[in-house]
Amino acid sequence: MLEARLEQAALLKKVVDAIKELVQECNFDCNDSGIGLQAMDNSHVALVSMFLKSESFSPFRCDRNIALGINLNALQKVLRAAQNEDILTLKAEDAPDVVNLVFENATADRISEYDLKLMDIDQEHLGIPDTDYAAQISMPSSEFQRITRDLSAISESVTIECNKEGVSFACEGDIGKGNIKLRQYTNVDKPAENVEVNMTEPVALTFALKYLGNFCKASGLSEQVRLCLSNEVPLMVEYALANNSYIRFYLAPKIGD
């Protein structure tokens, strides 16, 4: 059976908010190392890969591998009943028809219990190759969200270029063009504001802003975001969570003239 207790319901609420535009139905794969999820969007352009390590829960128990096939819209409806600060416990039998969610407030004078029906989802898993990315950029997630939003007003696509000058986000549309350059920045007192650029070779790739805008829905999960790029491979956008848990998005580039 599965029993996984989260100190704050906010984490699961934010995870579901972050992925439900991209994916409507998916399996939450539970095993003794934690709860994972991998799913493509309908058009097979983007992929989300999330893993909440067992250490992110206290306690965590999962005796055997269990796939919880969940409609994220339905899960969100149930999670709306949880306050951000509630303690959230997920429970499921070994071959479950439902997942049980319990929300307790901090003073333990309210306990809400919900059963969410599960569905059979035949989901393909993709092997994500280990990649030595040519460029890695860490920046405030709010900054990335702002850049994505601002450029979306101009164009459908953005070209992210990384060279020894720094990183630039450029786009061109009917009304004109825009370009945002970021340079390395270190603030010892406020590391959340740091911009770090690590590059082994120059990279320039073009991506659809619509998907980047979707990824930015995860901004509330982490103050920093990491962009990893190599020429002619999907972009990885990573929001690191506590206890080595993570939510990663992959986006196939636009290629060719």
């Binding site: 493509m40 058009s43 097979h44 352009v45 983007a46 992929l47 393909e124 898993h125 993709l126 092997g127 994500i128 190759p129 696509s157 073009t206 659809a208 491979v233 999907p234 992959y250 986006l251 196939a252 580039p253 636009k254 290629i255 060719g256 003239d257």
Partner: peptide, 14 residues
Amino acid sequence: DRSQKSILGFFQKK
């Protein structure tokens, strides 16, 4: 114009 690639062109099905 550039064309949007599929993620399946990069990551193989397991």
